[in-house]
Design a protein around this nucleic acid. Sequence first.
DNA 1: CGTGCTGTTGAGGACGATCAATGACGGTGG
DNA 2: CCACCGTCATTGATCGTCCTCAACAGCACG
Lengths: 261, 261
Amino acid sequence: MVGMMKPPEAGALDALALKFRSLELDSEADLQTVLRFVKIREAVSPGENIVDTRSPRRQLTVLLAGVACLHKKLEDDSRQIYTFQYPGDFCDLHRYMLPELDQKATVTALTACSIGTIRHDDLDQLLSQHPKLGLAFWRASMLEASILRERLLNISRRAALPRVASIICEQLARLEAINIKSAVIPITQVDLADAGGLSVVHVNRIVQDLRKLGALSKKTRTIEVASKERLAQLANFDRRYLNMPDLLSDWKIDIEELADS
Amino acid sequence: MVGMMKPPEAGALDALALKFRSLELDSEADLQTVLRFVKIREAVSPGENIVDTRSPRRQLTVLLAGVACLHKKLEDDSRQIYTFQYPGDFCDLHRYMLPELDQKATVTALTACSIGTIRHDDLDQLLSQHPKLGLAFWRASMLEASILRERLLNISRRAALPRVASIICEQLARLEAINIKSAVIPITQVDLADAGGLSVVHVNRIVQDLRKLGALSKKTRTIEVASKERLAQLANFDRRYLNMPDLLSDWKIDIEELADS
DNA sequence: CGTGCTGTTGAGGACGATCAATGACGGTGG
DNA sequence: CCACCGTCATTGATCGTCCTCAACAGCACG
């Protein structure tokens, strides 16, 4: 009745725990306390809306599995994707802190997802009893802002090819950061277009260019990275804006090597 | 020697106090405590760098008077302005929470400014002793993110005219929010171009169009709003993303009236 | 076996960039 | 006080990236 509450299954919250640790929430006790307040909801279908904007029961949503995106529809029914979201990412922090904002911004599942929710009421209590938690959420918001700045810069200043390459690089890096090593980026060309401010037609041509240039694999109907290095080079990608731990330090080396050549 | 520390002059910190109140920092005691840690530095000249990125003494900077912008230079020495900053705005929160990030992003004074600083060390203490403060800063970061999302949407999806109009609208609204009623927007066409991802030449033509359309005054060499309503209409401006209190509710009415026509 | 979404290809056109030159203004130093 | 310089604003011409429109193929879905 209270939204399919379930006993937390082993592993279901791993992504969230990983996220909090990357946000420097040091206290294991704080972490465990938060996790207890998470209600899990499995099986959100692709295309489905993750954040229920009409529900009176206000709650924070966190993605536990799958890929989603935060986006907004415009008057002319074009769509701007602000950010992609991966397991561990908070979907609607803004609705907690600034509920007046972004009425029309929604979060939609791109693949099959499962999500966790924390009631805003519970969050109020958690934050007042565990101040460190607030700092972690704050950090999460600043990371989101950093990603937005990078995207702004890309859309505003770079040509279509490096722009698309950058977006793919970001997704690859973020997937790796949560230990998903697959070279396949689970988003469509339509999504790339809506995220990069380009037409689908043009994105398609750019993707083909990237395939010819050896950055993406020749396999059609999917965005599969053939060479991370080549892609990063074409994108002029500097992943520092993602504030990632060292687990990806190989990227930096790659980039420096390319810079020399 | 420690950065021209001064006794806080009457009124110098008003902008900051106003800001904290708008961020829902309710406790007057908390507010007064923070203000005591602010060191004031007057007379930053236009073009000067506000955030000293090389100083070993890490500190948070807040704008107290004047206009500044957060921006980044690219390889091809084009410049992207992320946000404009007004009295009360925090200039480099990101450098406190995620110091690895945005090494190359800098804050530059656009007009004569005065700034306040709080040492990171002091901030650590303040935050641990006044948890509410952290929530206020968090809110500030989310507001910044909201502004970035709106800008992203504008640059990505709108033509040059509404884009420029939107940026001007935003500046006007933000100035009004801090009780600066002047119709003159204190930024140059160059700044508009760098913020909107357009060439200066094109911005100039758009500005002239906006003048012909009655949105800006005919006065050359300055961006002076002739009709807020006309401008908001051309921009399709919905200021909710700025999360402003009711002091500007007249705007909303204006927009609704225009929507009917 | 249609229907819909994604991907692909071609042709034409538009919006905005780039290049180039000039004027106006403010500040600086001789 | 004036000559000089840099920044900002303005105008004209050309060019190119990317959009739009249009059509179709493949695949997944019911």
